[in-house]
Simulated scan of single mutants.
Amino acid sequence: MRDMIKKGLALGLGAAITSKEQAEKVVEELVRKGELNRGESKEFVKELIQKGEETQQKVDQMIQSRLQKMLSELNLATKEDIKRLEDRISELEKRQMKTEGEDI
């Protein structure tokens, strides 16, 4: 029964708990209610933190992927596009100045 509770909490709360303080608070409440003993509590805190971090990484990756897709669909200029255009403008300005200098 305790193992089942631990697994359920690790999965359910792991996503919501990302800080050690939050995990410790939840585990302390479980110890107080007698659903978890002190010996298991430290390991359970580690497990909750690990699950939270894993979930956070997955969410970050999903957001990054969707953001890239949306930006791609908007067909916006990238930093590389802008840098290439700036370099081209700079080169054209140099050519123009050189040509104007030869006309004098």
Results as ranks from 00 to 15, higher is better:
E93K: 07
D87N: 14
L11W: 03
T99M: 08
R95W: 03
G34A: 08
D103M: 11
M4R: 09
D81Q: 13
K98M: 08
F44T: 02
D60P: 01
E28I: 05
D3V: 05
L9K: 00
M97N: 12
V26G: 04
V45Q: 02
L74P: 02
R2H: 11
M62I: 11
R88V: 08
E43D: 14
R32Y: 09
Q22G: 11
A16E: 05
E86D: 10
A15Y: 03
G52I: 03
G52F: 02
K42T: 10
T99F: 13
I63A: 14
G52N: 04
G12T: 10
Q56S: 12
S41Q: 10
S72V: 08
Q68R: 11
K20T: 07
G8E: 10
R38H: 09
R32A: 15
Q22L: 06
E100L: 07
G12I: 07
E53C: 02
E73M: 12
R38L: 13
E28Y: 06
G12W: 03
L76E: 02
G34D: 05
E47T: 07
I17M: 04
K83E: 15
I104K: 09
V59F: 05
G52D: 04
I82D: 05
D81N: 14
K69A: 15
K20F: 01
E53K: 13
S90D: 12
Q68D: 15
M70A: 15
G12R: 10
K20H: 05
M97W: 07
V26A: 15
D81M: 12
T78K: 09
M97T: 13
E43H: 03
T18S: 09
K46S: 14
E91P: 00
I5H: 03
R84T: 12
N75V: 10
Q96G: 01
E29R: 11
R32E: 14
G101T: 09
R84S: 12
Q22P: 00
Q50P: 00
I82L: 15
V27G: 00
E100V: 03
K79H: 11
Q50C: 03
Q50W: 06
R84V: 10
K6A: 14
R66L: 15
K98Q: 14
V27M: 01
K42Y: 10
Q22T: 03
Q61S: 14
E80I: 02
A16D: 04
A77H: 03
E24N: 01
E80M: 02
K42Q: 14
E35T: 08
K51S: 13
S90T: 13
E102I: 06
K46I: 09
K6G: 01
V45S: 01
L67A: 15
L92F: 11
K7N: 10
L92M: 09
M4A: 10
K25E: 15
E100P: 00
R32K: 15
E53A: 13
